[in-house]
């Protein structure tokens, strides 16, 4: 009942084609993942140009080293982690980050980062405070599921497997989490407007 277009065998096939030097596979991987990577990267470092360059470099590296790539089950998860490491390194080089955080500890927090809001919207402290409160109310489980589903592109079936939860409880958790974030749309609408411009 839900599309399974990011399932593991598909990913494994595509990845193997890339390892064999298929430009087309790389092209597809790029298009299937770009916006999620950008979104994730921008929440880590709210600077469009840095994130764009980071993704550019990530794909250039994939291409240059395609023959030496190891096997991957979930392409998007792999790319998110690779981008994370590259961007954090950059942050460290710029003296903004002292220690290298671990991806697995940090990833759920990253997508709920409000740092980008701070930079874009200094005058709306009240709104920012509200958003932060909403995010604080999310449980770790809720954050994890949102990350798996929206960012890593896991299907419900795969999330069931990963978390041991049933389909209905996953949906319920997700609804509740989204409900909590609901009041804050306007902040992001504002932000998106800024981004477009």
């Amino acid at each position: 009942m839900y599309s399974e277009n990011l399932n593991e065998t598909e990913d494994e096939n595509l990845w193997n084609q890339l390892r064999n030097g298929s430009v087309k596979a790389l092209d597809i991987i790029y298009q299937q993942n770009y916006q999620v990577l950008f979104s994730f990267g921008y929440k880590l470092i709210p600077d469009k140009e840095i994130v764009k360059d980071g993704i550019q470099e990530l794909f250039a590296n994939l291409w240059n080293k395609h023959a030496g790539l190891s096997q991957v089950k979930k392409i998007r998860a792999y790319l998110l982690k690779a981008l994370f490491n590259a961007l954090i390194k950059q942050k460290q080089l710029n003296g903004l980050q002292e220690i290298l955080p671990d991806y697995d500890d940090y990833k759920y927090l990253a997508i709920f980062s409000t740092e980008h809001l701070l930079i874009e919207q200094e005058k709306n402290e009240e709104r920012l405070r509200k958003l932060k409160e909403g995010i604080k109310q999310l449980s770790k489980r809720e954050k994890e599921i949102i990350f798996l589903f929206y960012y890593e592109g896991y299907s419900y079936k795969q999330i069931e497997k990963q978390t041991g939860l049933k389909y209905q409880s996953i949906k319920n958790l997700m609804y509740r989490a989204l409900q909590r974030l609901k009041g804050f749309i306007y902040i992001l609408a504002f932000l998106i407007l800024h981004l477009i411009i």
Partner: peptide, 11 residues
């Protein structure tokens, strides 16, 4: 626009 809560897309 609800999905804009979760993602920030590049235009």
């Amino acid at each position: 626009s609800r999905l804009d809560d979760i993602f920030i897309k590049l235009p």
